[in-house]
Design a protein around this nucleic acid. Structure first.
Lengths: 203, 203
DNA sequence: GGGTTTTGTCACCGGTCGGTGATATACAAA
DNA sequence: TTTGTATATCACCGACCGGTGACAAAACCC
């Protein structure tokens, strides 16, 4: 079973993923990937053409996130919108926090453009949007804005927590802190949604 | 005026900053800095000991942010807390958005630890906190939490805007979008502060 | 002036990078 | 079995990396 190009490709792709999650994206390169995969680097060029091609293939064959749909299934009919939105945000963050690969890819995305980061960004982008669209849920524009800001805030806090970079003493990697944040998010979403539904202005 | 060690040091430090802001932190290295500064790299070792030492010196002699105090001076007595907090957040973001160096350092901070990123993180950390402390302003804990989450969200949106990585169609680098976000932030801060002041619970 | 120290230039080292050609080995078709 | 092809190994290239020693020239001190 020595000669199996398919298996070799898989070894290379697996090596790439291990390398990203263990050493970070700055360590990614032809030599490093080949070394990590236990394979001669010439095979990377043979099977993927180049490093770019490898990243492209990796992006194509990887689904970075489990489907968002499952979150909805646990929500009974008639649940208020703010609670649905809150759950989506918190679930997204929960998954994000449990995925070192996704975290590293976001950092990479902030630093550089390549086939992998571009594809990952697109995937990430349409996640919640499609989930909402499938359910035919339409949200007020300001409400969406707030949700995105909050979502971004939490994602950022997760990234900072990786290297113990607290933000204003707020370290999201501490469980109690996380609970507090979740509580506040839930409350503020409820408050703001209520205002909007009552037709208040934001002027 | 050929021989002036002080001037050479400044050239090196300036070269480092130019390099960070132009090529990004991934391009930082002894050779690259020396090249950018138009100086032999051996001088970096002579004057700063090593790359680490250079980063340390750079961090020590740079104040990354203008003082927060100025923001307060424009605020009349009796301004409600939520407005003070909102102004602080938006001002922070305004400055952050106008400083490519700060943006790059944050990305660096998320990726790696070194004397510069550590020092920068500390500086960033105490910015708003000291400003509030100097004024003797004490905020409700949940209110602080919300403020930090919102601040993080905006900072993150700025970073994503650099490479046109919108988040759920929300591109903060578009002026109209930015205005909308500012409006929403202002409104939600007001709403949440009001709830807290009225003694409501977040359960 | 002479001697010393500071400042700057140059050449070089071992190592790693991305990338390529030549060649050996397994396997499948004839 | 022979021939051809897909697969893997190996050696090598030029370029750049971080880091160092040798040395020239300017500046300073006496």
């Amino acid at each position: 079973m020595h000669r199996d190009s398919e298996k070799t490709k898989q070894k290379i792709l697996a090596g790439l993923e291990r390398l990203i999650t263990s050493k970070g994206f700055t360590g990614v390169g032809v030599n490093a990937v080949a070394r990590e995969a236990g394979v001669d680097k010439v095979l990377i060029y043979r099977y993927f053409g180049s490093m770019e091609g490898l990243l492209q293939t990796f992006a194509d064959n990887k689904d970075f996130f489990p489907r968002m749909a499952d979150v909805f299934d646990g929500i009974p009919e008639g649940t208020p919108l703010h609670e649905i939105a809150t759950r989506m945000i918190l679930e997204h963050i929960r998954v994000f926090q449990s995925s070192p690969l996704a975290q590293e890819l976001v950092c990479w995305e902030l630093t550089e453009q390549n086939p992998l980061t571009i594809m990952f960004g697109r995937e990430m982008e349409k996640r919640e949007l499609t989930a909402l669209a499938e359910r035919g849920i339409v949200l007020d524009e300001d409400v969406v804005t707030l949700s995105v800001v909050v979502l971004c805030g939490l994602e950022y806090l997760v990234l900072r927590g990786r290297n113990n970079n607290p933000m204003m003493k707020l370290d999201y990697s501490v469980p109690e802190t996380r609970k507090k944040v979740e509580r506040v998010v839930s409350a503020v979403m409820k408050a703001f949604f209520t205002i909007r539904e009552n037709g208040d202005s934001t002027e």
